[in-house]
Simulated scan of single mutants.
Amino acid sequence: MTTTTNSGEPRVVATEAALAFLDEIRKDHPDVLFHQSGGCCDGSSPMCYPTSDYRVGETDVKLGEIGGVPFYISGSQYDVWKHTQLIIDVVPGRGGMFSLDNGRERRFLTRSRLFSGGEACPLPLARP
């Protein structure tokens, strides 16, 4: 399920390159999730974790899914970014220290687009 705005726009999307990279990772780790990093150790990268290795917090917000994989963001970070659509892409470089893209010489990257006018709407917190 993908959560959308008032105008039907998904809150998180992925480029074809990101979806292909995610498929590659899922060959080694079939059950994964994303969490948008809040800027600590690894900047503000989208982090990809085995589902069993990451505990979704009570205040985390599920923005939607990319490639069938759930995508979360912390509630406090959602408050800052709620007026944007996150666009997950892939670029050359090293992934986050604990993210499954690390060591693959490519990494996920978040780009964004501001919603216009009435596109954005409140999104309730998603309980795991």
Rank of each mutant, 00 (worst) to 15 (best):
G8T: 05
E9C: 01
A17V: 05
F21V: 07
D23R: 10
E24K: 03
K27E: 11
H29T: 00
H29F: 04
H29L: 00
H29K: 00
P30A: 01
D31K: 04
L33V: 03
F34P: 02
F34G: 03
S37H: 15
G39R: 13
G43C: 13
S44T: 15
M47P: 01
C48D: 13
C48F: 13
C48E: 12
Y49G: 10
P50I: 01
D53I: 03
R55Q: 15
V56W: 08
V56R: 08
V56S: 07
T59A: 15
T59G: 08
D60M: 07
L63Y: 11
L63V: 14
L63M: 15
I66H: 03
F71D: 01
Y72R: 06
D79Q: 15
D79H: 14
V80P: 01
T84C: 12
I87C: 11
D89H: 10
V91F: 06
G95F: 09
G95W: 10
G96I: 04
M97Q: 04
L100S: 07
D101V: 03
D101Y: 08
G103N: 04
G103H: 02
R107C: 05
F108E: 02
F108W: 05
R111C: 01
R113Q: 09
G117D: 14
G118F: 09
G118W: 06
C121F: 02
P122A: 14
L125M: 10
R127N: 13
R127E: 14
R127A: 13
R127C: 06
